[in-house]
Write a protein that binds this DNA or RNA. Structure first.
Length: 291
DNA sequence: CGCCAGGTGCCAA
DNA sequence: TTGGCACATGGC
C-alpha cells in the first residue's frame, strides 16, 4: 500500500482489498451516496468525503493528511491485512466464492453512538428506509457540515442532542415508526452514563453484548452489529434473516434457530467470524440466496 | 389486499 | 429457556 497527499486529496495505490462500492453497499454503513460518476460520497465521524476507485487507484477527496491520520486510517481499517483474512477464511468452497465476490470489502470502524441508533432503526426495517431515517435525523438534530451541488450534509447528532428529540417528531418526520421511543430512551441512557460506552470497550464479548442489550431496541442481533461495526469486535457474528438463510442453505443444511446460528458462526470462523459474516451477507443478499 | 423488511419486547407455557 | 404475536411504515 502506498499513500500520497495533495492538499485534500488522498491517493492510495497498491491496495487491492479496498473497493468503495463493496465497502459501502455491503450493508454495514448507511450514510453514503452513490454519485453519477460511480464515486461514493460519505459522512463519517463528522467529516464529509468522497471515495472512488479508478484502475488500481483509490481517490479520497476531502481527506488531507491530518484527517487521514486522525480519522480515516482507522475508519477504513487500513492497518489490517485483508488478503490474509480472506486466505484464512477461504478454506471451503462457500467462503472461497463469498470472499472472491466481496474482495473489496473492509469492515469500517464507525461512530459508536451513530451505529447504536442506526441499528436500532434497522429492526424489522428495509435498508433504503433506514438510510432515509438516519439522514433525516441528522438534518433535524445534527450540525451543518457543508454542501455541494447534490445536497447538504449534516453530522449525526450526539446523545445529548438526540435525547432532547420528541418521539412524535422522530415518527412524523424521520418515519421511524415504533422505534421512536427506543431511540430517545437509548440516547438518554447513554447521555446519563447508565450505559457507558467506554466501559463496554473494556469488556469481553459476552459482557459487552449483555451491556448493550440494556438499551431498548437492542437485542442479540443489533448488539452484535454494533460490536462488529463500531467497537472493533471482528469476532462477533450478527444473525439476521439473510445470514440465517445463507448459513442454513450453505452450511447447516437444515432450519436452525438464530441463537444456534450465532454460536455456530463463531465456532466455525473463530476470530474472523465478523469478516465471514459480512462476506456472506453481501454475497447472499446480492445473489438473493434462499429467495 | 396481505406479506415482508438487517428484530425486539412482552407475555404465556 | 422457548414460542407466539404486535409493533409503524411503505413497496410490491
Amino acid at each position: 500500500m502506498k499513500i500520497n497527499f495533495d492538499g485534500d486529496l488522498c491517493l492510495i495505490s497498491e491496495l487491492e482489498e479496498f473497493d468503495p462500492r463493496d465497502i459501502f453497499t455491503c450493508g454495514q454503513a448507511f450514510r453514503w451516496y452513490e454519485e453519477a460518476d460511480g464515486s461514493f460520497t460519505f459522512i463519517a465521524h463528522g467529516k464529509v468525503a468522497n471515495a472512488k476507485k479508478v484502475g488500481g487507484e483509490i481517490f479520497l477527496r476531502g481527506v488531507d493528511k491530518a484527517s487521514f491520520d486522525e480519522i480515516f486510517y482507522n475508519y477504513f481499517d487500513l492497518s489490517r491485512d485483508y488478503k490474509l483474512v480472506m486466505e484464512e477464511l477461504a478454506r471451503d468452497e462457500v467462503m472461497k466464492n463469498a470472499t472472491e465476490y466481496g474482495k473489496g470489502i473492509r469492515i469500517l470502524n464507525q461512530d459508536k453512538f451513530e451505529t447504536i441508533i442506526s441499528f436500532i432503526i434497522s429492526a424489522n426495517n428495509q435498508i433504503p428506509r433506514i438510510k432515509n431515517a438516519i439522514e433525516k435525523i441528522s438534518e433535524m438534530y445534527g450540525d451543518y457540515l457543508g454542501e455541494d451541488e447534490n445536497r447538504k450534509y449534516y453530522s449525526f447528532p450526539s446523545a445529548e442532542k438526540l435525547s432532547l428529540a420528541r418521539p412524535e417528531d422522530l415518527r412524523e418526520f424521520a418515519r421511524v415508526g415504533f422505534r421512536d421511543v427506543r431511540i430517545v430512551e437509548t440516547a438518554n441512557l447513554i447521555k446519563d452514563g447508565i450505559v457507558n460506552i467506554d466501559e463496554i470497550d473494556k469488556m469481553d464479548l459476552e459482557d459487552a453484548r449483555c451491556a448493550l442489550q440494556v438499551l431498548p431496541g437492542v437485542g442479540p442481533k443489533v448488539a452484535d452489529c454494533i460490536l462488529l461495526f463500531a467497537f472493533d469486535r471482528k469476532e462477533s457474528f450478527p444473525v439476521d434473516v439473510w445470514i440465517k438463510r445463507v448459513m442454513e442453505e450453505l452450511y447447516l443444511k437444515e432450519v436452525t434457530p438464530k441463537s444456534k446460528i450465532a454460536l455456530r458462526g463463531r465456532e466455525v470462523f473463530g476470530k474472523n467470524a465478523g469478516f465471514a459474516n459480512q462476506y456472506l451477507f453481501y454475497y447472499g443478499r446480492e445473489n438473493k440466496l434462499g429467495k
